[in-house]
Design a binder for these strands. Sequence first.
DNA 1: TCTTCCATGTAACGCGTTACATGATTTT
DNA 2: AAAATCATGTAACGCGTTACATGGAAGA
Lengths: 184, 184
Amino acid sequence: MPSTLGFALLGLLARTPSTGYDLARRMERPVGYFWTASHSQIYPELAALEREALIEHVVVEGPGPRPTKRYAVTPLGRSALAAWVATEMEPQPVRDLETLRLWSVWAAEPAGALSLVDQMEAGHVARLAAYAEELAAVTADPHSADPRHPQFASRLTLEGGVRARRTAVEWCRWLRTQLPAPAE
Amino acid sequence: MPSTLGFALLGLLARTPSTGYDLARRMERPVGYFWTASHSQIYPELAALEREALIEHVVVEGPGPRPTKRYAVTPLGRSALAAWVATEMEPQPVRDLETLRLWSVWAAEPAGALSLVDQMEAGHVARLAAYAEELAAVTADPHSADPRHPQFASRLTLEGGVRARRTAVEWCRWLRTQLPAPAE
DNA sequence: TCTTCCATGTAACGCGTTACATGATTTT
DNA sequence: AAAATCATGTAACGCGTTACATGGAAGA
């Protein structure tokens, strides 16, 4: 069974066949919003997926000293991906550096507390804008209404991102009402 | 400079001096909502924090073959924690297994899609209940109004948890309205 | 000519999880 | 008498990040 990264790559390749390099770039934008990986992780994982016959590659002409490989999902890989989506899994532990810092905010000066909340809010506002823009683009695509089309799933995840970030921004604004005014 | 885990432990010890064993248990409940660690990680990290004079220990009587050590934060550790809270940090990448699975839901049968959303909702509902209960308990403590008291920060983080989970549950309910009805 | 982009890999290191190891006290 | 809890550590392994290494094609 592939690792989580393996299924992330399977999901990417099921949408569009790509080279390893291309996967690394695609990991930054749309999937990157909830999963990331660098190329040094991707290449070995592609080899592992191919060993299990979940993907296969064709060599295409390209630059550089090594052959350029374009990977695609096999029927076996496609059904493995579909099965994994519905697999029973226990909820994974949360790891949130921001909340961890806020949890020790009582030990800091009022100015430091305000600085933290400002940082948090700025980050969430930026993400919200990015998600909202992408959601608008995806919703404009009529494929996003078809449950068996990738754009449909993109729409669902982006909607979640927008809702989560909107809530986070509201929370940050509320946090500021709770903090004491720093001494001038 | 300590690792993130180091600051998590510093935050715990600033609230209440504890043994390593005790820290491992405390990592499960209140902090465990946004950071976790097992005892095998904690013991080496305590040694590292002590080497940097951020914490110190006294030996107390206790069971077992080795001495029982109760750790407490030093003034140096306390100021390191306060400084870390307000440190400038770039937003960390999100890693969300649930959303990653949802992102490939277009490849699954309608029944599988529904199963995934049900799982997600159940998890968020359970967490919401736990956070809400704890928030009620913390808010009842008058210390939670004092910005320099640990309970104050606990209240802020729990409020964020409740808001986030409430939004997530709503999102899951919305997701179900988007999914096709599975064939009977 | 120089820099950026395309493209693929390996190596070293750090963090996190699981498993191994020990043994006294307290509860069932 | 057996099991659970308190208590501390080490070892092995996997995943993720950063750095090292190579070299052609395209653009500035």
